[in-house]
Design a protein around this nucleic acid. Structure first.
Length: 709
DNA sequence: TTGCTGACTTAGGACCCGAGGC
DNA sequence: GCCTCGGGTCCTAAGTCAGCAA
């Protein structure tokens, strides 16, 4: 562990040096192509004109496969039709957008009234698309590739769509009572439960193998909620959980899942087809004339709440969601989804200021759950792009911001010093912001602003380093963050001061919260919030590590190993951990055995080659020459296989406790990876699987090998 | 300023299924 | 053809952050 964290620290220190270098490099290249590109691609385009390249085709045929929905400037793009909007796009100010919009409302009244017209006149709108489509096809046919822009399609009023149509959610199947032969025992005696009580009992029975059922809070919460579902008779009889025997139920479900596995190919195929049918019917929606994949179109089935860490509500009953709990969001002029027969929706809403299609309130925390679009959708992709553009803007001002917070360490105001030290942690250690949480309602986890005295230890000297801060706290999902980091003297002195006269449970930064911090960050840079630092530091680390680790002479597997190592450096930075796979030791052992065997094979093959060479030297005939060639090839093949296995082993070992997926999916600007792949001729499929390629279609589409984050 | 809520992103674990080895 | 393993996908919890009301 300590080794890991030392490395982690090293990585961080390194990347900071690299930041400077990057900055210098960037300065020296002032005005280069990248910058132009950056401007052109800046997310102002996102809500503006430039991405409106002709998705109106797909809008007509509704074929997302042919048009990924990203309206990216392409190389052969001709000058924009609406030059006057170009200027607007040079400065990206997402957060001011709303304010700006308000100010611009009057100015744009004329344009807005156009919108309104269009809104009420969808058919005209489609007609126009049709016309554009037609024109475009004509041009294409004539070999003229010109960008046709869908000028109308820009949402500067904060709306997210004009048209939204979907089929509503898919509900889980109703509860199927257990067959009579499957019995529940209380205090050793068989007892038939009412359907409601039985259903809840099955939730518990299904989890009998899980560690959850050994936890007191889980058992207590479950039992309390279960009793609420019981009939008065059941309630009076069943008073102690430990007298409940669910084993028959448990065995029944195990047998069922076993039976599912044993199904014939045909049966499995049938289920697959049915799932596909449901996906086609409910898994897509039409948003602004694109057919888009929906992320989660199934309503969460009832069950027992599985909170993470020491969650005070674990084991509580997550109740079944009924149509009457559901709010449907779609456009007025769409075919509204129908509630299941005999039921009705809670509400039918037409709010185009939000992106969700369906929502309901869950009963554990009382929070709202949503059905939204898949990451491959235009709306999510553009947001993602915008996120990375904000992080790239931070790259430009980060040195200034760092200088500022270093200055603030000396402020005479405590709140400023706290803010500055917290920001230093967020920047240097990629900590999360750390919002306040409801005590007793959620697991006790913290982030930067909510760190407490008990989470930090100061060591003026440790392991040969000065001013070491030891951080140890439960972070998001109760994942432990443990790190020892040497900080600057002034930070250290400040921390000593913050700790003075405080108890273990007191806040380290008692004059700070995320709201204060983010307000400050907003003043430093438009759109800047605490989490942008995580995105920025993750992406810049990837870029820098790739530069450092990639050797031009490496073959593809070695390059991929380098990529994974760079990815890993980021995962370590962001503390993305995973439980080591249960079969890790075993599979590692198996792999080692394979490697040993391969080595034996190799030496055998080499011997054979040697012998064949000797033969060839003696016999000097075609046959033995051929034999040498064959043996040579065999040696080559086997050593390649061996190398591959060894790389695999290294990769797997290094990956034992680290999850690469999270950073890849959420923190690393995909354009860095795409550019790297292009530069080193690594097929993008080796880095991104199909889903990831769909999510990052925008980046794959727009990125050249010389892209710089 | 504070508390609360809604919308959206980020997160790890469970589960499924197919590739590849035997 | 069977089995194992791991990647891919699904699931949904747990964060962040802005906006609003008191």
């Amino acid at each position: 562990d300590s080794h890991k964290h030392k490395d982690k620290h090293k990585d961080r220190e390194h990347s900071h040096k690299e930041h400077k270098r990057d900055k210098e490099r960037e300065n020296s290249k002032n005005g280069n192509r990248q910058q132009d590109k950056h401007f052109r691609f800046s997310p102002c385009n996102l809500s503006g004109l430039s991405y409106t390249r002709m998705c109106c085709f797909s809008s007509l045929s509704i074929k997302v496969e042919e048009d990924n929905g990203y309206h990216l400037p392409i190389k052969h793009e001709k000058p924009l039709k609406r030059e006057r909007d170009e200027d607007d796009r040079y400065e990206h100010k997402p957060k001011k957008l709303k304010v700006d919009n308000e100010k611009k409302v009057k100015k744009r009244k004329q344009e807005d009234s156009d919108y309104e017209e269009r809104e009420v006149c969808i058919s005209l709108f489609l007609l126009k698309c049709l016309l554009l489509h037609f024109k475009e096809s004509q041009k294409r046919a004539a070999g003229e590739v010109e960008m046709v822009r869908w000028e109308e399609e820009k949402y500067t009023d904060g709306s997210k769509w004009r048209f939204l149509e979907h089929k509503g959610p898919v509900f889980p199947p109703p509860y199927e009572p257990l067959p009579d032969r499957i019995r529940f025992y209380y205090d050793g005696k068989a007892m038939k439960l009412s359907p409601a009580a039985e259903e809840v009992a099955t939730f518990y029975a299904k989890m009998l193998d899980h560690e959850y059922t050994t936890k007191d809070i889980f058992r207590k919460n479950f039992f309390k909620d279960w009793r609420k579902e019981m009939t008065p008779e059941e309630k009076s009889k069943i008073t102690e959980l430990k007298k409940c025997d669910f084993t028959e139920m448990h065995e029944y479900f195990k047998a069922q899942s076993e039976a599912r596995k044993q199904m014939t190919k045909e049966e499995k195929q049938k289920i697959k087809e049915e799932n596909e049918r449901i996906l086609q019917e409910y898994g897509y929606c039409v948003m602004d004339n694109h057919r888009e994949r929906i992320g989660n179109f199934r309503i969460e089935p009832p069950g027992l709440f599985r909170g993470r860490g020491d969650h005070p509500k674990m084991g509580k009953l997550k109740r079944r969601i009924r149509p009457e709990d559901i709010i449907i969001n779609c456009s007025k002029d769409s075919a509204h989804p129908q509630a299941p027969p005999g039921s009705r929706w809670k509400e039918l809403r037409h709010d185009n200021k939000v992106t969700w299609l369906v929502s309901w309130t869950e009963n554990i925390q009382g929070s709202i759950k949503y059905i939204m679009l898949n990451p491959s959708s235009r709306i999510k992709g553009e947001k993602d792009w915008q996120k990375y553009e904000t992080a790239r803007r931070l790259k430009k001002s980060v040195e200034h911001i760092r200088a500022q917070y270093r200055e603030d360490w000396r402020s005479k105001e405590m709140r400023i010093r706290q803010r500055a030290v917290a920001l230093y942690f967020i920047d240097k250690l990629a900590l999360r912001a750390g919002n306040e949480k409801d005590e007793g309602e959620t697991a006790d986890t913290v982030g930067c602003c909510s760190l407490r005295v008990e989470h930090i230890r100061l060591h003026p000297q440790m392991d040969g380093q000065d001013y070491v801060v030891e951080l140890d706290f439960p972070g998001k999902d109760s994942i432990r963050y443990y790190n020892k980091v040497s900080v600057e003297k002034r930070v250290f002195k400040n921390l000593q001061l913050f700790l003075e006269n405080k108890q273990a449970k007191d806040d380290l930064f008692d004059r700070l919260n995320t709201s204060i911090l983010n307000k400050h960050l907003q003043e430093l840079m438009d759109g800047l919030t605490a989490k942008v630092f995580r995105t920025y530091n993750a992406s810049i680390t990837l870029q820098q590590q790739l530069k450092e680790l990639t050797s031009p002479d490496d073959n593809i597997p070695e390059k991929i190993l380098s990529y994974n190592r760079a990815n890993r450096a980021v995962a370590v930075l962001c503390n993305h951990q995973r439980a080591p796979p249960k079969t890790f030791e075993k599979s590692m052992h198996n792999l080692q055995t394979k490697i040993d065997e391969k080595k034996k094979q190799l030496s055998a093959a080499k011997k054979e080659l040697k012998a064949a060479k000797a033969d060839a030297k003696m016999l000097r005939d075609e046959k033995s020459k051929k034999a040498v060639e064959m043996k040579k090839k065999a040696v080559q093949r086997i050593s390649e296989q061996l190398m591959k296995l060894e790389v695999q082993a290294t990769d797997r070992e290094e990956n034992k406790q680290i999850a690469l997926g999270t950073s890849k999916l959420n923190y690393l600007d995909p354009r860095i990876s795409v550019a790297w792949c292009k530069k080193w001729a690594v097929p993008i499929e080796k880095i991104y699987n199909k889903t990831q390629r769909e999510k990052f279609a925008w980046a794959i589409d727009m990125t050249d090998e010389d892209f710089e984050f």
